[in-house]
Design a binder for these strands. Structure first.
Length: 196
DNA sequence: TGAATGATCACG
DNA sequence: GTGATCATTCAT
């Protein structure tokens, strides 16, 4: 049960995305401890990645992707949903890992309330859903994962198997196998699998 | 299958 | 300033 150090994040986004599978996101919210195991991620880089927000260089929105690793990058999608990324790579190099799905472990009642009473398996099986369940909005943008409000820890659990496939919901860069998930885990978001 | 809903970006 | 686009979710 150890909190991941900043050096864990200060690597290539693709490596961080793969290694985050099985780790546990922890969030303190109004006295509740919310915990969920990461079961699905996608990696995004910079100028070489047409699917990335940072593809066209720095802007006010993607600024944190170019900053120090181990911070949160949260943005609003489709005008109504927040999506949560973890910043990777070194300062000046754009990189981030989108957290797409979690397996709820602790604080499930609080998550269900935040999610409007949705069924258990639908609490965190999508990027917008898990942000709602963990009360993460753009006001958490730039937050440090070494803070006491939100962090990611390793509880020793190791995935049996990791599968990769192309990323979801993009109009560019869809040919790259940069989505990582645990096959057979029921909390992985719906959408395409690795061709099966 | 498509409605909801607003920030962001390119362009002028 | 305007218009197109979007790393989605939910109800039909």
């Amino acid at each position: 049960m150890s909190k991941l150090p900043r050096s864990f994040y200060a690597r290539a986004a693709e490596d961080v995305a793969r290694d985050l599978l099985g780790k546990v996101l922890v969030r303190m919210f109004e006295g509740h401890m919310l915990r969920g195991r990461i079961v699905e991620t996608e990696s995004y880089t910079g100028e070489s990645d047409p699917g990335s927000h940072a593809f066209r260089g720095p802007s006010p929105r993607n600024r944190v992707m170019f900053g120090e690793a181990g911070h949160l990058y949260v943005y609003l999608s489709y005008g109504m949903h927040s999506c949560m990324n973890v910043v990777t790579d070194s300062v000046g190099v754009a990189g981030a890992v989108l957290i797409r799905a979690l397996e709820p472990l602790e604080g499930v009642a609080a998550m269900a309330t935040l999610r409007g009473g949705r069924p258990f398996v639908e609490l965190c099986n999508g990027p917008g859903k898990l942000c709602q369940a963990f009360a993460i909005t753009r006001s958490q943008n730039g937050m440090d994962l070494e803070s006491t409000e939100i962090w990611i820890e390793d509880d020793g659990w190791i995935p049996l198997e990791i599968t990769c496939s192309t990323r979801i919901g993009l109009s560019a860069g869809t040919d790259l196998p940069l989505r990582f998930f645990l096959p057979d885990n029921i909390f992985v978001s719906k959408g395409k699998t690795s061709g099966g």
